[in-house]
Structure formats: structure tokens, C-alpha cells
Amino acid sequence: MSLFDWFANLRKTEPLIQEQQEREIADGLWTKCAACGVLAYTKDLKANQLVCAECGYHGRVDSDERILQLLDPKTWKPLAEEVYPTDILGFRDRKAYRDRLREYQQKTGLIDAVKTGTGLIDGLPVALGVMDFRFMGGSMGSVVGEKLCRLIERATAERFPLVIICASGGARMQEGMLSLMQMAKISGALHRHQKAKLLYIPVLTNPTTGGVTASFAMLGDIILAEPKATIGFAGKRVIEQTIREKLPEGFQTSEYLLQHGFVDTIVPRTQLKKTLAQLISLHQPFFPLLSPSQKLERHHSAIHNAI
């Protein structure tokens, strides 16, 4: 290709790029709230962590955004980024699992449905796992299981508290029984973390269902939930079809779980970092200001003074 051709090509492609950029800005400038329909200036909405200022609706947050929201700037150290999904069963429904994986990877820029790593929350070290609903509905397959296990094992070894932001439809059926077994595998790793007397806080976001609810989402020492998230074990449709009844209003929401004693408190997203920092700091080992010998000394002098 000659230099002249190159310039000609560049000219040809130039307007196209501009057009695309323009459209993105035009589309993204305002965002309509999925709950109340109010238009918000996208920058403001982002600044408010994708929570609608009008009705308090919590929009979906992707994993990168969540990490930015929670951790102190530039403290994120990702773990197990080399772990990639694979299609060992040769699974094909209407589409081959292999192709589905590639499509989602291209569409989302993610490797699979969870990001794991360590970082600081208000200066306190934490092991953090963040599920990403965009990747096949946050479904739990071998990669989610493996990455969370490595994260938990690291937390246990380094004596870090553990926080997992849950967002998942449940097990990834395309991996068959391998995906179901991840529930037990992660619970096993959590048992070791618990045995080391370390703090684990899952944060349940919309939606947290199926196998994730029936394993690590419900195993926290303290369980937090975002407002109005769908949280449950069986899917609503399955329950309706099984019992042939309409489900009550507000069934399987954060508020419903709070009412029935399965979450400790509901935390608005804008308060999440502060809340996590407070809870983690409350569970730091306590070092009394006086050493035992100093205490003894003070005790003796108190007796001495009394005499």
C-alpha cells in the first residue's frame, strides 16, 4: 500500500469513526431510569453510583465500576486473571457453549463472570470478589468456582477479611454437574476461612438466585443486601408453576429477606463502602492501649494509693 492509498483510506474511514463517537455521546448523555422513567444526566447518575436520584432505583453496576466504587484508588491487585473458561462437555443447546463463551467475551471484554483480587477499603486490606451479571447472567461455572476458591484461600493465608459482591442467576447449566459442584467447592474454602476466625461479608445485589444463594451468598458472618434486589433460591416462575398460585407482593426481595431474618441490613449503594469499612474495622483484632505489664503496674499503684 502506498502512502497515497493510506491517506485515501484514512479519509474514507474518518467520518465513520466520528459518526460513531457522536452517536455514543448522544445516546449516553441522558439515561432513563428503568423504574420511574425519569431522565438523568448520565454523568450525575454515574457520580451517584447508578442509583436514580429520583426514586432510588439501583441500576446494574459492572465489575470494573464496582471495584472503583469500593476500593481506595489504585489499590486493586487482580488475582487469577489467567484462568479461562473451557467447554469440556462439548455442550450445545441452540448454540455451542464454545461460541457463546467467545461471544460474551467479545461483547463484555470479560473472561468470565467474576473478578477477584485484593485491595484497600479506607486503608483496610480486603480480599474482594465481584460477580458480573453481564457475562452469561453471572452464572457460576468452573471459572467462577476456581477464582473464588483461590481468592478465599489467599484471604485465609493472608488473614484478610473477604467481601463477595453477588450477582448471579445460579449455576451455569452448560457445564453440567461441574457447575453444581462449585457450590460445594467454594463452601469448603469458606469453611477454612471461617475456621481461621476471619470475617466474610457477602453483598447480595440484583439478582442473587439459585446455586449462589444456596452456597456462598448465605454463608456470611454478616450479610448485606442492596435495596430491592431479587434474592432467592428457586426461580419465581418455577415456584408459580409448582404451586399454581400467584406469588405475594415483594416476595424474594431484599426487604422480604430482611423481614425473615436472612440478611443483616439493607445498604444503599452510596453507603456501601462506608458500611464495609466500618464493619471490617469493627472486626479488626483489638489491641489494648496498655500492655499487660503496664496494666499490672497501674493496678498496683491504685492499691498503693488506696492504702
Partner: peptide, 9 residues
């Protein structure tokens, strides 16, 4: 259980 799963590195 720890060894159950299929992934590539």
C-alpha cells in the same frame, strides 16, 4: 471438591 472443575490457564 477442590479439584472439580474444567478451565484452562
Amino acid at each position: 471438591f477442590r479439584q472439580i472443575g474444567a478451565f484452562k490457564e
